[in-house]
């Protein structure tokens, strides 16, 4: 299992370098929207600029490290029929997807962490004061967030076996995420109703919750609810995926190839 994984990881690593330029464009392009939102908030509360800088820089980081793109790939491959190649391989396609995620997120880390460190030299509010436990909790929450977001995306990808316009539905799903995951505003600034709703949806656990730990705004109550919520969502999604996968394969009718 491990040797197999190492082989795929190496393959995906080489593949990534073939698309170097576009990876960079996407990485920096996704920063634009959070930065604009940051400007808006700094404009509304000019005296709290520091805390918004920390929040939105952390947001960019967490968003990249939990990002998921599998639904777009699967939609294309299932539609064009090339997904069959993946299915006939002796190793479950989900492992290929996971390996790809590990490689790309490794790259994001390698590029973004030094950026953060350099920025922190100039902007004092970016210097983090997290304890060892704090870091541990953050990493755990981040990992759970990445799992939930990946599983969600993969789940939508499986739906492509049945439906045509899955990416459109997924885009809507992502749009709702703007509000409920803390991307448009820190939870403390959202109307109370939105804040309450967000506890029940997976969105908050994808981005907002790790972010709260990193920026030091999570108290023990939020922590408990956050971990319970993340854990439940992660388990539920993984169970659904394993159930749907086989049903999807039966439904699959490859076209072309």
């Amino acid at each position: 299992m491990i040797t197999k994984y190492l082989a795929i990881l190496r393959m995906k690593y080489v593949e990534m370098f073939a698309y170097q330029l576009s990876t960079m464009v996407w990485m920096f392009g996704t920063m634009v929207q959070p930065l604009i939102t940051m400007m808006v908030w700094m404009n509304i509360y000019p005296d709290q600029g520091e805390s918004f800088v920390l929040y939105f820089v952390a947001l960019i980081m967490v968003e990249r490290l939990t990002s998921a793109w599998d639904v777009w790939e699967m939609d294309r491959q299932i539609r064009e029929g090339t997904f069959s190649y993946q299915i006939v391989r002796p190793f479950h396609p989900i492992h290929w997807a996971i390996a790809e995620n590990i490689v790309y997120k490794g790259l994001f880390l390698v590029v973004l962490v030094p950026c953060w460190i350099i920025l922190a030299l100039f902007i004092p509010s970016l210097r983090l004061h997290l304890s060892v436990t704090g870091w541990g909790l953050f990493l755990a929450a981040l990992l759970l967030g990445a799992v939930i977001r990946f599983a969600m995306s993969f789940l939508f990808g499986i739906l492509c076996f049945w439906m045509n316009k899955v990416t459109a539905i997924y885009a809507m799903f992502e749009t709702v995420s703007l509000f409920l995951s803390g991307q448009i505003a820190p939870f403390s600034l959202l109307p109370p109703v939105v804040k309450q709703i967000s506890t029940f949806f997976p969105y908050r656990y994808m981005i907002g919750f790790p972010l709260e730990i990193l920026t030091g705004t999570a108290n023990s109550h939020t922590l408990m609810i956050g971990f319970i919520g993340s854990f439940i969502w992660a388990v539920v999604l993984i169970v659904i995926i394993s159930l749907l996968w086989n049903a999807g394969l039966k439904k699959n009718q490859a076209v072309g190839g």
């Binding site: 509360y45 509000f179 505003a185």
Partner: peptide, 11 residues
Amino acid sequence: ILMVQIFFYQT
């Protein structure tokens, strides 16, 4: 529009 409303909820 909702996004603008979130901002104007605070200002």
